[in-house]
Measured scan of single mutants.
Amino acid sequence: MQRVNMIMAESPGLITICLLGYLLSAECTVFLDHENANKILNRPKRYNSGKLEEFVQGNLERECMEEKCSFEEAREVFENTERTTEFWKQYVDGDQCESNPCLNGGSCKDDINSYECWCPFGFEGKNCELDVTCNIKNGRCEQFCKNSADNKVVCSCTEGYRLAENQKSCEPAVPFPCGRVSVSQTSKLTRAETVFPDVDYVNSTEAETILDNITQSTQSFNDFTRVVGGEDAKPGQFPWQVVLNGKVDAFCGGSIVNEKWIVTAAHCVETGVKITVVAGEHNIEETEHTEQKRNVIRIIPHHNYNAAINKYNHDIALLELDEPLVLNSYVTPICIADKEYTNIFLKFGSGYVSGWGRVFHKGRSALVLQYLRVPLVDRATCLRSTKFTIYNNMFCAGFHEGGRDSCQGDSGGPHVTEVEGTSFLTGIISWGEECAMKGKYGIYTKVSRYVNWIKEKTKLT
């Protein structure tokens, strides 16, 4: 034993070699072989497995989906700052455009905790909710729209109204504003409101030439003092309507412009014939205590009207009353817009006519005020429907199939267009061939041609 100890002390290297040989010859039971080890760690190889990531292109799944990435790591994937920024906006807080917040056709661009709407022409605001041009839906104005110097929408209202708090709607500024039905039992019968379409306001006024200088022999019209197929109006439903009495009662109609003036057809009036105007009328054979009678003290036909040349060209006249009318729910003026808007309103496509005229061709006159909704007829169809001249200051309205029309005794009465609950004068009943005849239409004086003249002559002093 002493000898062994001496050998170990003198030859430590020998001992180490012996131990190493023993270990190498022993069977290893701690580690699995290569094949079995792979069965336990069965993990798919990654895209760049075996390579240094710093030297390969980034992978979106590896960089940002398996674990949260930084902007720089995302930049490695896209290799483009702009594309990385677009991805980053949604990656950080989701897609803010998912709810489609942009209105009126706006395009949404996502941002971090926010979004941006790219608005089409005519709109602005956070969600493109603000109209900035009158060309689109009248700028959301209830009545009139004008573009300011910086191309912003400025709404306005006709006389007797003021802008509401929203700067879009119009509200009454006087007790009985024009064009409004205020009798409670008839307010439910107000005709369907007309909503502004998209309009090209630059070209809204037709490029028409008034044929002022045409000389033409007097034409022989049949029954051209021209509501057939209409309905009984309720008291106060058309408070701007008046009836004219002269040699015979209810020979023509008219509309209240203001307390002192009536507008009617020029062919209705004769110099030297006494005319009485009755406002607030409903049943011409009954006294309903809503009527107001006034005498006409002055007749002003349009300066281009000449019955000797043509009885229905420039067929418009103004009547001055001896005493002002007292405005109330049964006696209310009709609204008159400017030339541009009167023309736009007419193009809405349908209007209402009213009167006490004959209820059928050569038949009896109506006792109760009649009204009828009539569609506008395109000019080409209008011209083809008659052998008589249709001037540019006239328009056609009615039904091709016949059966409904204005008729004798309705002449001078109103053709009105309702705009968001307020009625505007767009025409004056003038003439036609018979009444409600198939293929024939009622012919009306186009008020847009005469609004400046009306307003100039009827100013209240």
Rank of each mutant, 00 (worst) to 15 (best):
R3L: 13
M8V: 09
A9C: 08
S11V: 11
S11R: 12
P12H: 12
P12E: 05
G13N: 07
G13A: 06
L14Y: 04
L14R: 02
L14G: 02
T16K: 05
T16I: 07
I17M: 13
I17N: 01
I17F: 04
L20N: 01
G21V: 14
Y22D: 00
Y22E: 01
S25V: 12
S25P: 06
A26V: 12
A26H: 01
T29H: 09
T29R: 09
T29S: 08
F31N: 15
D33F: 02
H34M: 09
N36S: 09
N36H: 11
N36C: 05
A37H: 15
I40F: 08
I40H: 14
N42L: 05
N42V: 11
R43I: 08
P44H: 04
P44S: 11
Y47D: 09
K51C: 08
E54G: 11
E54C: 08
E54Y: 04
F55T: 15
F55D: 05
V56G: 12
V56D: 04
V56K: 03
Q57A: 14
Q57G: 13
G58S: 10
G58K: 15
L60Y: 14
R62S: 10
R62N: 09
R62T: 14
R62M: 11
E66P: 14
E66V: 08
K68Q: 15
F71N: 15
V77E: 09
F78L: 11
F78K: 15
T81C: 08
T84L: 05
T84E: 12
E86T: 15
F87T: 15
F87E: 15
F87N: 15
F87S: 15
F87G: 15
W88V: 14
Q90L: 07
G94N: 12
D95L: 13
D95N: 09
Q96P: 06
Q96L: 15
Q96T: 05
P101C: 02
C102E: 01
C102Y: 01
C102Q: 01
L103A: 03
L103K: 06
G105M: 13
G105V: 03
G106P: 03
G106E: 03
S107G: 09
C108F: 02
K109W: 06
D110K: 15
D110W: 15
I112G: 15
I112F: 11
N113D: 14
N113T: 14
N113H: 12
N113K: 14
N113Y: 04
E116P: 05
C117H: 02
C119A: 02
F121Q: 10
G122K: 07
E124A: 11
L130F: 15
L130T: 11
D131V: 05
D131F: 06
T133L: 03
N135D: 13
I136A: 13
E142M: 05
C145Q: 03
C145Y: 01
K146R: 10
K146F: 10
K146W: 08
S148F: 07
D150N: 08
D150S: 08
N151S: 06
V153T: 14
V153F: 11
V154A: 10
C155I: 01
C157H: 00
T158P: 03
E159W: 04
G160T: 08
Y161P: 00
R162I: 07
R162E: 09
L163G: 01
E165Y: 07
E165M: 10
E165P: 06
Q167D: 10
K168T: 06
S169Y: 06
S169V: 07
V174P: 01
P175C: 04
P175G: 06
P175I: 05
P175W: 04
F176G: 02
P177Y: 01
P177G: 03
C178I: 00
C178D: 00
G179D: 01
S182H: 09
S184N: 13
Q185F: 10
R191P: 14
R191G: 13
E193V: 10
V195T: 08
V195A: 09
F196H: 09
F196T: 11
P197Y: 09
V199W: 12
Y201K: 08
I210N: 03
N213I: 07
Q216S: 07
N222T: 04
D223V: 06
D223R: 11
F224W: 11
R226V: 10
R226Q: 04
R226Y: 14
V227I: 09
V228W: 08
E231F: 03
E231R: 12
D232P: 12
D232Q: 08
K234W: 08
K234M: 04
Q237F: 10
V242E: 00
V243F: 09
L244T: 01
D249H: 07
A250M: 07
A250V: 08
G254K: 00
I256A: 01
I256M: 02
I256P: 00
V257S: 00
W261L: 01
T264H: 00
T264L: 02
A265F: 02
A266V: 02
C268H: 00
V269T: 05
G272S: 08
I275T: 04
T276C: 04
V278W: 06
G280H: 02
E281A: 10
H282K: 05
I284P: 07
E285L: 10
E285N: 09
H289D: 05
R294D: 00
R294M: 01
N295Y: 07
I299M: 08
I299S: 12
P301D: 03
P301Y: 12
H302K: 01
Y305R: 10
Y305F: 09
I309Q: 11
I309F: 08
I309S: 09
I309A: 12
H314D: 12
D315R: 00
I316C: 00
A317R: 00
A317Y: 00
L318F: 01
L318M: 03
L321G: 00
L321V: 07
D322Y: 02
D322Q: 08
E323F: 14
E323L: 14
L325E: 01
L325Q: 00
V326G: 07
P333V: 00
C335G: 02
I336G: 00
I336D: 01
D338F: 02
D338V: 03
K339H: 09
T342Q: 03
T342Y: 03
N343S: 13
N343C: 03
N343H: 12
I344L: 12
F345P: 02
F345K: 01
F345M: 09
F348H: 04
F348D: 12
Y352Q: 02
V353I: 14
S354M: 15
G355Y: 15
W356F: 08
W356M: 04
W356T: 13
W356S: 04
V359Y: 09
F360R: 15
K362E: 13
R364M: 14
R364E: 07
S365G: 04
L367H: 13
V368P: 09
V368K: 14
V368H: 14
L369I: 13
L369P: 13
Q370M: 07
R373N: 14
L376V: 12
L376C: 02
R379E: 15
A380I: 13
L383M: 13
L383Y: 12
T386S: 15
F388Y: 14
T389Y: 07
T389M: 04
I390Q: 14
Y391I: 03
Y391C: 15
N393L: 02
N393K: 04
M394F: 13
G398C: 02
G398H: 04
E401R: 13
E401G: 05
E401N: 07
G402Q: 06
G402R: 08
R404Y: 15
S406G: 11
S406I: 14
Q408C: 12
G412K: 04
G413W: 15
G413N: 06
G413T: 13
P414E: 06
V416L: 11
E418P: 11
E420K: 14
E420S: 15
G421S: 06
G421N: 14
G421E: 05
L425T: 00
T426A: 01
I429T: 13
I429C: 11
W431G: 09
W431E: 13
G432M: 06
E433I: 04
C435N: 06
C435F: 03
K438H: 14
K438E: 15
Y441W: 06
I443M: 08
I443Y: 13
Y444I: 13
Y444P: 00
T445D: 01
K446H: 11
V447G: 02
Y450W: 01
V451A: 14
N452F: 04
I454Y: 01
L460T: 05
